[in-house]
Design a protein around this nucleic acid. Structure first.
Length: 346
DNA sequence: TCGACGGAGGAGGGAG
DNA sequence: CTCCCTCCTC
DNA sequence: GTCGA
């Protein structure tokens, strides 16, 4: 769903604080209206400290950065970046591979035994996952998914969030939120796996414990999400699963039809019914819009997150969540002028 | 000078 | 088996 | 790396 730089709460593509810090600095600089002519001048901006100011001075002086030259020349950094293109491979796995003599995707393809399931799929689809989803195709995916979900059980509610919902002309993936009246946060269903049949114990159960027995020993959430995923797999739309638990599916999909040749990343989250609108609000973003809205909520004496809107007591302790019947109601509670998703691209 | 920086679901593997 | 840790994703 | 306590 990462459209440009700001989508949902997730402008953290690569690693650690360095990434987040320098990203903020870069953002501040790029949005600065005037031309920066000295490190001292840049130093005044939020997120620019001594070190970055020094680097600005060095670049202004010499036209390049020694540190950057060094990184570009480092083959380990290059190999890490290359291997990290694969979904499921992060810094640790990349280092492990490099230590094992694998530095390119080509070399990686020759060593499939080094990869787990997620990484194997990530490698298979690496190029496809790097291509963006045109809005027209995302809309077709939305139609297909909403139709199939409604056909499975009309009580589901589903919304495609992320930059697509904000009207973006292209998206990085499709992020679907679903809910169902049978699944609420107050539930007796707090994730813990219960024994299916209390009476039966011992070796008799071993067969039932088969890994693929979805739907037998499952929480309410697991059944509700699993049923959707199964239904979407039935017609071949969902092609692969990267991971799947009781509340979150991460996988791969492709629409039927000759014009759709590229596999796309699809995430499905099952959200408690009473938290649905706050979750849709949160996962629609943008990051910056969420920050501003949360700040406004605090000024009004509320705390807002993906789980709900709660009043803050005088001591600063959050109270019970305010019942919310729509996204718009969240705005109204906060006396925040309503903005449709297309106007949340901050 | 020092801790926080968003944080949770899921895979996988080790300890008990 | 459960618990807990690291890694990864978003 | 940067910010604020």
């Amino acid at each position: 769903m990462c459209a440009d730089s700001s989508s949902t709460p997730s402008t953290f593509s690569s690693d650690s604080k360095f990434s987040s810090t320098s990203r903020k600095a870069a953002s501040v600089l790029s949005h600065h209206p005037e031309r920066i002519t000295s490190g001292e001048q840049a130093r005044q901006l939020a997120g620019i400290g001594r070190k970055i100011a020094d680097k600005i001075d060095e670049f202004l002086q010499t036209g390049h950065l020694r540190k950057l030259d060094k990184i570009r020349a480092s083959d380990v950094a290059v190999a890490t970046a290359e291997l990290s293109r694969v979904s499921g491979i992060g810094p640790a796995k990349a280092r492990q591979l490099i230590d094992g003599g694998v530095r390119t995707l080509e070399e990686l393809r020759a060593r499939p035994e080094l990869l787990n399931r997620h990484q194997t799929l990530g490698l298979r689809y690496v190029t496809e996952f790097e291509s963006r989803i045109p809005r027209q195709e995302a809309a077709a995916i939305e139609r297909h998914v909403l139709h199939r979900v409604a056909e499975l059980d009309g009580r589901y509610r589903a919304t495609v969030c992320g930059s697509y919902r904000r009207g973006a002309e292209s998206s990085g993936d499709v992020d679907l939120l679903i809910t169902h009246p049978d699944y609420t946060s107050d539930g007796a269903e707090t994730g813990r796996r219960r024994t299916v049949d209390g009476a039966e114990t011992g070796r008799g159960r071993s067969a039932a414990g088969s890994a693929t027995a979805r739907g037998s020993g499952r929480s309410a959430g697991g059944r509700l999400l699993g049923a959707v995923v199964d239904h979407l797999s039935q017609d071949g739309f969902v092609t692969d699963t990267l991971s799947q638990g009781d509340s979150k599916f991460m996988g791969v999909c492709r629409l039927p039809g000759a014009q759709y040749t590229t596999h796309r990343r699809l995430d499905i989250r099952l959200v408690p019914h009473d938290q649905y609108h706050c979750a849709v609000l949160y996962f629609t973003g943008s990051d910056e819009f969420n920050r501003q809205m949360r700040a406004h909520a605090l000024e009004q004496g509320f705390t807002l997150n993906e789980y709900g809107l709660r009043p803050l007591g005088t001591t600063g302790v959050a109270g019970e969540p305010v019942p919310v019947g729509s996204e718009r109601e969240v705005f109204e509670y906060l006396q925040y002028p309503y903005r449709p998703p297309e106007q949340r691209n901050l």
